[in-house]
């Protein structure tokens, strides 16, 4: 597609980081809480589960908190934050002419391998994020900025896990 050639380059990382920092600060300043993503996905999932098997929700304590009885799992700030993230990403992509159906991958693998790996990696991410009570945005970045000990320990663990495995996957990305 011709859009790729017209795609605007990404912003300077320090400038983007400063913008992101200001957004994060405003989130804390106005609402008292930071940013996040996995919690919103969690609630969207539980909403689906509640439609399919409401009795099951009422038997699992972890799900009960979000959707037990008449509680609507979508009535939570994090769901709106998550929906906003998707909208914001789309708008920015549109302005940068970067909206395009494509698969980003290393040069040595085919699309199907990339999709399978993305699915597996996503599964690990989703599982780990709930275990750690937050993802890179909610735990590492937001918690890091307000100096939570657990968030900093978590952040080092994420980088450690990724660097430890990166060598073995070098042919997959490069």
């Amino acid at each position: 597609m011709s859009t790729q050639s017209r795609a605007k380059p990404y912003m300077n990382p320090y400038l983007a980081g400063t913008l992101l920092g200001v957004v994060l600060f405003l989130a804390f300043f106005i609402t008292g809480t930071g940013l996040g993503a996995s919690g919103g996905l969690n609630r969207l999932l539980v909403y689906g589960q509640n439609l399919v098997a409401p009795e099951h929700i009422d038997q699992v304590p972890y799900l009960l908190k979000m959707a037990g009885g008449s509680t609507n799992p979508l009535e939570s700030w994090i769901v709106f934050l998550t929906v906003g993230t998707v909208i914001g990403g789309f708008i920015s992509g549109l302005f940068g002419r970067r909206v395009k159906f494509e698969t980003n991958k290393g040069p040595r693998i085919d699309n199907k391998t990339r999709w399978a790996m993305a699915f597996i990696g996503g599964g690990l991410m989703g599982y780990g994020a709930r275990l750690a009570r937050g993802c890179t945005s909610g735990q590492a970045m937001s918690g890091g900025a307000v100096l939570s000990v657990g968030s900093w320990a978590f952040m080092f663990a994420v980088f450690a896990g990724a660097y430890a495995l990166a060598y073995f996957l070098r042919r997959y990305w490069n």
């Binding site: 993305a118 990696g121 991410m125 780990g128 993802c135 896990g161 430890a164 495995l165």
Partner: peptide, 9 residues
């Protein structure tokens, strides 16, 4: 676990 998921996914 997330670090592993990051580099895999």
């Amino acid at each position: 676990i997330m670090g592993v998921g990051f580099i895999v996914g």
